[in-house]
Design a protein around this nucleic acid. Structure first.
Lengths: 201, 201, 201, 201
DNA sequence: TATGAATGAGTGTTCATTCAT
DNA sequence: GATGAATGAACACTCATTCAT
């Protein structure tokens, strides 16, 4: 019998793939190998399932992020670690896909108690950037805009593989579409690209 | 009697708001003030409506983009114009929302004849960047990754206003969440942030 | 294709038999020979169906009642006509069953616009009784209590046939259970019983 | 741990309020503060619960009725006591509501062993009336119809308070709706109304 | 061309009941 | 005897789509 956590794993995968509106409770129950009524007994309904998935997803991401930054002193490394953590974990594209859809939906499904987590996400980068400024190594840039670039760039890259491949197959001219790099390297590269603009020369 | 283009306008707005799965044909017909059967008669069905919306959306965006770049010589200005065009138009958040959702969905709904448009989007930036390199003004950076950052940053910012406000209301500590700038200024700022890293010193 | 009125006929019969909670929309659709979705398209949902049935039921009863009283001058005859009308019509037990259940339910399902009809029901009897008093033929009795007796007695008798027969079969001793009279005779007898107490001697 | 009798108390209240079809085993278990599985273990299921409630309800009513009549000799007083007993007890509206619904349902849920109780209910009144005839005080009237009037009038009045108030609020014209008397006075008044018609002058 | 009406196949949810311990 | 967890079968309602006119 799958645990509630197993159910959330399955639901996360399906929500990432189909979106909240497109996902079917039947399908989730079947994929999780629990009776649909059991799914309702244990979780409580679609809305509760969505909330639980979002909460777990963002909690875990923020926890890993704060943990990662804890042990790193160098501000440049911190920025790189930030980007890397955005796309780490077992199914990095799930976090990205759900986050992108939820942003597009205006956060309609975000429970109030998940919002502070998003604040901590921005806050972590904000502190890193101001520390860099204090150390005389970073120019003073808008933390929120930097966050948008990094998060948007990482999330978009993490989820656009299927489109990229289709476009690449159709448009042999655009060379830059063809490279397939590990997500981790891409996060590093994206961070470096940004850092080049942020660092004081 | 609304024209097909009027219908696509309405459909675009609703798809941006609710997603393809969340949008209802009833609602679109009602909002467009056409009979539901007429909607089917003129457009052909939900899938056809989605295709038409996506095609028109990306055609228009690419057209405006290429037109904008046509008249600009300076490579830095071209990058800024690129960002600005990503968020211009009457309802910039609609393009962003639909694009983000579609990327998250793996491009499931993108008709084949829309794919070349995405290639042209990347291609336009790629040419600008390589021109900058040729002119000795840009470092050689990955055009696709740059594209991810710029597109992701702009689209995320263009759609995250509702969430940003909720987070800002709950987390008075994070100062950078509070600023509310016009989208076009933000696009400009994001481009500058990136340009700082791309430009040769 | 059955008309909406045909559907209400069927729904009334099923509601009378099973109660609102016990009736199933599937069953009503099937019995009315319309597709379930058609039932919803035409009526709007269970609550709307209940409201429509209640409204039509009480409208018709009050209309027939007021029409019947219109042409009768003699106050005793008016009381008898009142009782007779309570149990007239094609399926008198349906009105009685639905009314009894609804009273037991505290009028939970009675739409606001049906309430005035109930007022007219009581009002019609009230006017008749006070006319009888004015004419010096009736003692002054509480119209509402009289209404309770007459309505309760008629409705109970109109619906209790199945129980009465079962009890009669089991209890051969109770002679008065065995008589099976036409409903309209019973209404007449009930009215006479009451009139005996109301009439001035 | 609540006794089975406590459970039946709760079930009776909920059945009276919601009807058998509208009542939920979950709700009953929760209100009775027993585990749902315990409810099944101790009572046996919804049908058994309904049977138990009906049996206890009618047993108690008949017992109180026969006990009340036992000590009264005067036939008029007996009729008044009959009416009074119909609406006595802790929650008189519960008996009335359940009885009305069950009559409307054609006695579908009445177990065979409850039927004799209904016979004794009618029988008690029948004996009183024939005694009155024997004593030369009552006219010979149908005991069953008299029973219908008295039981219907009392039960209807005992349960229609919510509707009466709503109607009264909407129809200020109908004066007789406004009086709010104790149930026991009403029973007395209803009995008197009937007695006036039954008594020999 | 346009549309009011109709519908097969879902869709989220509930409920009486049963298990395993 | 008692119970937390599980479930098959409904159940009210919806939706993209199609007809008939």
């Amino acid at each position: 019998m799958p645990s509630n956590d197993d159910i959330l794993d399955i639901a996360t995968a399906i929500f990432a793939d189909k979106g909240f509106e497109g996902a079917r409770m039947d399908q989730i129950a079947k994929a999780a190998k629990v009776n649909k009524a059991t799914l309702y007994y244990r979780i409580g309904g679609k809305e509760a399932l969505i909330s639980a998935v979002l909460k777990r997803l963002f909690s875990a991401k923020v926890a890993r992020l704060e943990q990662a930054l804890e042990t790193i002193d160098d501000v440049e490394e911190r920025v790189r670690a930030f980007a890397a953590t955005l796309v780490d974990g077992d199914h990095p594209e799930q976090f990205s896909a759900i986050m992108l859809r939820e942003v597009a939906a205006g956060g309609r499904n975000l429970p109030d108690d998940v919002l502070p987590l998003m604040g901590r996400l921005v806050g972590a980068l904000e502190r890193t950037l101001s520390q860099g400024v204090d150390e005389g190594r970073f120019k003073p840039v808008s933390p929120f805009l930097t966050h948008m670039l990094l998060l948007g760039g990482c999330a978009l890259y993490a989820t656009n593989a299927p489109i990229r491949r289709r476009v690449a197959a159709q448009a042999p001219g655009v060379a830059s579409l063809k490279t397939e790099l590990p997500l981790e390297d891409v996060a590093h590269a994206l961070a470096d690209l940004l850092l080049d603009g942020i660092k004081k020369t």
